[in-house]
Amino acid sequence: MIAVIIPMEQGLLLAAMLFLIGLAGVLVRRNILVILMSLEIMLNACGLAFITVGAHWAIADGQVMFMLILSIAAAEVAVGLGLLLQAHRRLGSLDIDQAGRMQG
């Protein structure tokens, strides 16, 4: 078997691109569901970064962190979806701009 080694920089670059796509989604989109999805993309980009770095140093810490991130993202989304249902029921819309009653 030939081991294909992907340089760490390229892996990190891909992760950074995913991260930026997620960030752009959070900033630009107005639908709460899509914002939660973009948040997932950001967290998973972090996971990818950890996998890449862990593979580079040949230690398991990266994968352990990935598992942690996976469970954190799941917990975050579980609460997020609960709030989303509440928002849909009480605001009658999933538009984040509807949630703007407080003034700075």
Partner: peptide
């Protein structure tokens, strides 16, 4: 509800920033 939605989204983003920063240090 609004406060929680705001905090959820912004706190999630900041956690992602912290995680990516850690990946760099790692």
């Amino acid at each position: 509800l609004e406060a929680a939605l705001k905090y959820l989204i912004l706190s999630g983003v900041s956690s992602a920033f912290i995680l990516f920063g850690i990946a760099f240090l790692f």
